[in-house]
Simulated assay, not measured.
Amino acid sequence: MLTHINEKGYAKMVDISEKNDTKRKAIAKSKITMSKEALDKIKNGQIKKGDVLSVAQVAGIMGAKNTSMNIPMCHQINLVGCDLEFEIDDENCSINIYAICKCLGKTGVEMEALNACTTAALTIYDMCKAVDKKMVISDIHLVEKTGGKSGDFEF
């Protein structure tokens, strides 16, 4: 049975009112690959739009907070924490982005983590596109999640 379809065949948001609140955490990852020139400019603070990783950090947090506005069947949740980590990979001219989101609620926080790292990657693209329009955003996936009825998951 499809949980997001009502008896008339239309999309619906699942009723989670009977579920118990539990602590939940999710970590998601995305990657943005770019030219050496763009990566060097990010590392040396030479992007004209400003400090790329600081802006991407804030954008990622905003992305997590706005997930239910972007994903139609996603519930608004009590997001209690969100942080992003950026791992510069000089060898592959890329930045790995990790989003860690936590909530206390009836449904998981995976979509918030995925939206956070994706929004951060898109922000990096936006801030650096004058230097490199060939950047590639990839490898978006859930790394791990804890809490909830379905239990823990690790990629």
Rank of each mutant, 00 (worst) to 15 (best):
M73P: 09
Q76M: 10
G81Q: 05
F86R: 12
A64C: 12
I77W: 06
I71L: 12
I97D: 07
V80Y: 02
G63R: 10
Q57K: 05
C82F: 11
G60S: 05
A59I: 04
N78V: 05
K49A: 12
G63H: 03
D90M: 07
S54I: 09
N66V: 10
L79W: 07
L84D: 00
I61L: 06
A64P: 01
S54C: 01
L79K: 15
V55T: 13
M62H: 09
A59V: 02
C74V: 01
M62K: 14
I71V: 13
E85S: 15
K65L: 06
D83N: 13
N66H: 13
E91M: 07
S68R: 13
V58M: 07
L84K: 06
E91Y: 06
S54M: 05
E91C: 13
A59Y: 01
Q76H: 11
D89H: 12
M62P: 01
M62V: 05
E85P: 08
T67Y: 04
I71H: 08
Q76K: 14
A59L: 06
E85W: 00
P72G: 08
K49Y: 05
N96P: 08
N78L: 07
A56G: 05
C93R: 10
V55Q: 07
S94N: 10
M73V: 15
K65G: 04
Y98I: 05
E85G: 11
A56L: 08
G60C: 10
I88G: 03
I61E: 00
L79T: 14
S54R: 04
P72M: 03
G50N: 02
N78A: 10
V58Y: 00
C82T: 13
N92P: 12
A59H: 03
E87L: 10
V55L: 12
H75I: 06
I77A: 11
A59R: 00
C82H: 05
A56Q: 04
N96H: 15
I77D: 09
Y98H: 14
M69H: 15
S94V: 12
I97G: 07
S68H: 13
G63M: 04
C82W: 04
N96W: 06
E87C: 14
D51M: 04
N66S: 14
G81W: 07
V55H: 04
I71M: 03
I97S: 03
C93A: 13
T67H: 10
I97W: 11
C93E: 12
I95W: 04
L79H: 12
G60Q: 02
V55S: 06
K49T: 03
D51G: 00
N96Y: 09
E87F: 14
A59P: 02
A64R: 02
G63S: 07
D89F: 01
K65P: 03
